[in-house]
Amino acid sequence: MRQNTHDRYGSVARSLHWLTALIILTNIGLGLLANRLSMEALETKILLFSLHKTLGVMAFAVALTRILWALTQTRPAPLHPERRAETFLAETVHWVLYAAMLMVPLTGWIEHAATEGFAPILWPFGQNLPLVPKSPDFAEAMAQVHHVFAWMLMGAVALHVAGALKHAVIDRDSVLARMLRGAPAGKPLQQRHLRPALAAVAVFAAGTAFAIAPRDHDPQPAAALEQAASGWQVQDGTLGFSVVQMGAAVEGGFSDWTAAIEFDPDSGTGHVDVTINMASVTIGTVTDQAKGAEFFDVAQHPTATYSADIRPEGDGFVAEGPLDLKGQQVPVTLSFTLDIAQGTARMSGQAQMDRRDWNIGQGYDNESSVGFPVQLQVDLTATR
């Protein structure tokens, strides 16, 4: 029998229940294992997170299907409605489970879409979501909500399993059999109360408030660099980079940098000195790892500098000079275009680099996890 009745679950509801349980329990294990795995096993960590995210999307789809199916069905009555406290707790846990089955994968999906790269979802439909901006701050907020909701889901699953075991071992009734093989149990109820649903809403409201509350231990931002004296003053600009990770381009950047620019428009020659606050780097969900000793080693090398001479070349210009990064000085050629009008210069440039030249990511000596080439992109507006 596919349909539910007042005293039993149909085959569709039971199948969706156990499929949801299998996916959720598997995904909880994948998530916990991936979180605990060290960055020394980055390839395995990325693979586990990719599987976790892919199963999360599947869990969302299955849970949504299950809920939509349940809305069209008769809901079997509680077996012991006279046990009011127990029934209230059981129904509250059910409401929390239903909400968590949707909200946990959804918040994780939104976090993934709001950040750059790291462990792509293993499907051909892209990594973004409509209306979700690329924002490290928003991604971090969603990560906190996802984390809290995940623990709420695990707590609800534990209570749900404990309740089922109580019915099977202590009460020895037909609650578990009703979901295992569709055994009839329970009598029709004349009325159901909304209090368990309202209690579940309160639980999620409290969880959300806890997740987004400010943390006293949140790290303070690094002190900003002082503006450099310059013939041309940078008014705004971006300093970004991209690298291929697990076959997908990942974009990052530095929010704090200065440039002292001397440039003669008549001859097209000049000089630039750039200082970068390495603690200002962001690169999606792997920002903390990027700051670590294996990559930029921000603690030991808090700044990077680039000192280059500017000259015309072809239809544009180049800046050539050493980039001092992580204790290594390596020549870098930056090709750029320049448009100057009424004392305002707009520049856009690119440079191709190899991370190995600066001993970045030495432990990742093949491109299966992190590519060797790094594309640097600079855009700025300056006035004099």
Rank of each mutant, 00 (worst) to 15 (best):
Q289T: 14
W232G: 00
V201M: 13
A200L: 00
L55M: 12
S368F: 09
A260W: 08
T208E: 02
L37M: 06
Q227L: 09
H94K: 05
F88M: 11
W358T: 03
D365L: 04
F138I: 07
L48E: 00
L225Y: 11
A223Y: 07
R83K: 15
G10E: 04
E313K: 08
W232D: 06
M58G: 14
A279G: 08
D357N: 15
T381N: 06
P331M: 01
L380M: 03
R215Q: 14
T303R: 04
W109F: 15
L33V: 11
A164N: 09
L30A: 07
T92M: 08
R192Y: 12
A299I: 02
R36K: 11
V370A: 07
S242N: 11
L51T: 09
A197K: 12
F263E: 08
D264A: 11
P265W: 10
R215I: 03
T383Q: 13
V169G: 06
G182H: 08
P322D: 06
H301M: 06
M246D: 13
A113F: 04
W232H: 01
S368H: 12
F210M: 11
H17M: 00
S348W: 01
P196Q: 01
S369Q: 12
A183P: 07
L32Q: 14
A211P: 07
H52S: 08
I261V: 15
D236G: 14
R83Q: 14
T344H: 09
L129G: 09
R75D: 04
K53D: 01
A143Y: 06
R346A: 06
L102E: 04
D256L: 01
Q220W: 12
G349V: 01
L198H: 11
G284C: 10
I28R: 05
V203W: 03
I46S: 14
F372S: 08
H271N: 14
M152I: 15
Q227C: 05
G314L: 05
R181M: 13
A162M: 05
V132D: 02
A223V: 15
A382P: 10
S230L: 03
I170Q: 12
A299S: 13
H52P: 00
G207F: 09
A223C: 00
R66E: 02
P221R: 06
S280A: 03
A141R: 11
T269C: 05
T287F: 09
F254V: 12
S368I: 03
A341V: 09
Q3S: 15
H167N: 02
E262P: 02
T275N: 08
N27L: 02
D339A: 13
R75Q: 15
I340H: 02
A85D: 13
I310A: 06
D354M: 09
V157C: 13
E82G: 10
I46G: 03
Q362C: 09
P331W: 00
L16W: 07
T285Q: 14
R215A: 04
L30S: 00
L37F: 05
M101E: 06
A299K: 13
P265A: 03
V157W: 05
T275V: 14
